[in-house]
Design a protein around this nucleic acid. Structure first.
Lengths: 361, 361
DNA sequence: GTGCTGATTGTATGCGCATACATTCCCAGG
DNA sequence: CCTGGGAATGTATGCGCATACAATCAGCAC
């Protein structure tokens, strides 16, 4: 790790000026073949790697896009990782059905989409997850590092977003399509749930329904619930005739809520606002010997992998999570190209996926 | 997005020099309370966000750590994401058991660990996934942006790594602990498999075993296979008395291989080199009405979430994936603090987790 | 009031690169 | 052989910040 070579070193070694070195790297066609070869040879010999910091400063753009998520480390201990501890491997039992999975599948897939699209368009991707009090510092920190920022809805206070947006374009991911000055990217939560609910209410003809919503602060959930209500209207069912409960989007929460539901009365269908909740519901139903779909229909929302392997396999609305990530990055690049554009809203299509837990009629 | 304010703007507005502004941000204690307040007020009013590029250039370090993965986009179409397409939601059946999950769980979790540890230590995290021919450009690109780089073993040619390592510290993740000049972080693959295999061979007393290995180019797999062979020795079983097959670490591959195994003769136990393979094996066994664990014991390796929800639940060796990510970042920061250190190797402990597919005796 | 000292603040410089502008080169056309 | 003009290259500058060093200030002992 000797001092890293710079353009000056390369220039000297290849007998040209630094401008030529820079040109070889940025616009090779503007340099004569012969010269280019000399420079590239010097680059390789010296192990030259351009400094992104210097480049970013000079070019006034970093070519990095940032992605900001809600924090997810509550479960991770703070102590440092320690090194090897010999070769003894403990053997433990795991019959405790510890199922607080922290299925971050959703974020993971969005991230993957963003990663793909970013590099495809010549941007690097920087990720940050906001955690508690440090969030503000984190956001401005990352804002100083990137050309544009995608933020998961509701993870950053509007005020902070507005502050950051004075400097770089900000895209809000997966939230309601609010009429603010930001670009938005989200899935058709409302229409998706509406379609699925109508399938249950009309095609299955089942009106004895329980709807398990998610946390009130989830914009996605708000839209899904609205879609469900639309379906009630579509199908001529009074809201008073169904039950609507709240859970917390987790599998454990789904179990607890299912227990509450059954304690009162077993419905003919349970619609859940996300897959994890639905999986928890399935757990409880199976445990009590209630057959799905014969006795109760169950549906979820999201399309996580686990739902494809459950028993019975879970009917759901599939969100294009990877595409969401891609679209977010895309939106940022569009705005970078033309900052004068009006705020855009991208709504990505979803699909109702019928599986065993609520089969095709 | 007017021109972003700089230290000069802040300095002018608050009536101090740029040096003082810089101090307020870097070492607040070196500035008088009164002055600090004035400067901070100006910062807020102007919406000032420090440029990481400039800071990185001046400070000669970017405070970014890079993470490089093998690419995973073969399945992602190249066309751009398009926007809203109205509100019609298609309803599709999904009884085709399309199970090419591309379970990137492993990477996702490693990434999560890296993310957590990086920000915790004051670094930003940049992610890149290598794809085919562009890999070389990608690696040097990211190398120019970061203070240190963690690379998943075998995703980047040694030559390229060596090139990059002339400039920044490089940590190799999850590979064999080779005696090279890089730092290494990995899990106890060999001992883990050895312990598990011995449990089957000795505690269960089952010698009629098939081992399904992974791709030959996986260093993890190589170690696991070695661990299995060690166990054979430990337990006094001749290698000729067991079958060793190769698969490809995927669920589909597991199914195909299981079919091959059964076509010949049903063994008493099937040990798989990763969980996905094992899940595929379970699929086939169930389909044929072969009971697990009564007829056949099945084990995996990794500890992915899906294995906790399978039927029967999968016995496995749990790798600390999040910890791997954290350890990688940790290793980089250690080396940044003291570049003269000898190459380090961190081996993280694993655990054999007994579940139904190979229960406790 | 004077001189001294540590605390604050200001001045000047360089980090490594891109790029506008100036200069030199090369070759076709006369 | 000379000249015009585009191609190729060189020169000079600034990007925004951190920091070494210089200058100034406040407070204290005398």
């Amino acid at each position: 790790m000797a001092k890293a070579p710079t353009v000056y070193d390369v220039a000297e070694r290849s007998g040209v000026s630094i401008a030529t070195v820079s040109r070889v790297l940025r616009s090779p066609d503007a340099v004569r073949e012969h010269t280019r070869q000399r420079v590239l040879a010097a680059v390789t010999e010296l192990g030259y790697v351009p400094s992104a910091a210097a480049r970013g400063l000079a070019a006034r753009r970093t070519n990095v896009i940032g992605l900001f998520f809600p924090g997810h480390d509550e479960t991770v201990p703070d102590q440092p990782v320690d090194s090897a501890r010999g070769d003894t491997v403990p053997i433990v039992d795991d019959d405790a059905d510890t199922s607080s999975d922290t299925e971050n599948l959703y974020f993971d897939e969005v991230l993957r989409g963003a990663e793909i699209e970013a590099w495809r368009r010549g941007f690097a991707l920087m990720v940050a997850a906001g955690r508690g009090a440090s969030r503000e510092a984190l956001v401005t920190d990352i804002a100083g590092r990137v050309d544009g920022l995608a933020v998961l809805a509701r993870t950053v206070p509007d005020e902070l977003l507005a502050y950051v947006a004075r400097r770089i374009p900000v895209v809000i991911l997966a939230g309601a399509q609010r009429a603010d000055s930001f670009d938005h990217v989200s899935a058709s939560n409302g229409p998706g749930m509406r379609t699925l609910a109508n399938y249950v209410l009309q095609d299955h003809g089942v009106h004895d329904v329980v709807y398990i919503a998610g946390p009130t602060d989830s914009p996605d959930d708000t839209e899904r619930l609205a879609g469900f209500r639309d379906a009630l209207t579509d199908s001529g069912v009074a809201e008073a005739d169904v039950r609507i409960l709240r859970s917390d989007f987790t599998r454990d929460g789904g179990r607890a809520t299912a227990a509450r539901v059954l304690a009162e009365r077993r419905p003919r269908a349970i619609l859940c606002s996300n897959d994890e909740t639905a999986l928890g519901v399935l757990d409880v139903l199976e445990q009590r010997g209630i057959r799905v779909p014969e006795d109760v229909l169950v549906t979820g929302f999201d399309g996580i992998t686990a739902g494809r392997h459950s028993r019975p396999r879970l009917t759901t609305v599939h969100q294009p999570m990877v595409e969401l990530g891609r679209a977010a990055v895309h939106a940022i690049t569009v705005r970078l190209d033309d900052p004068t554009l009006d705020p855009q809203a991208f709504t990505l299509p979803v699909e109702v996926v019928l599986r065993e837990s609520c089969p095709r009629v």
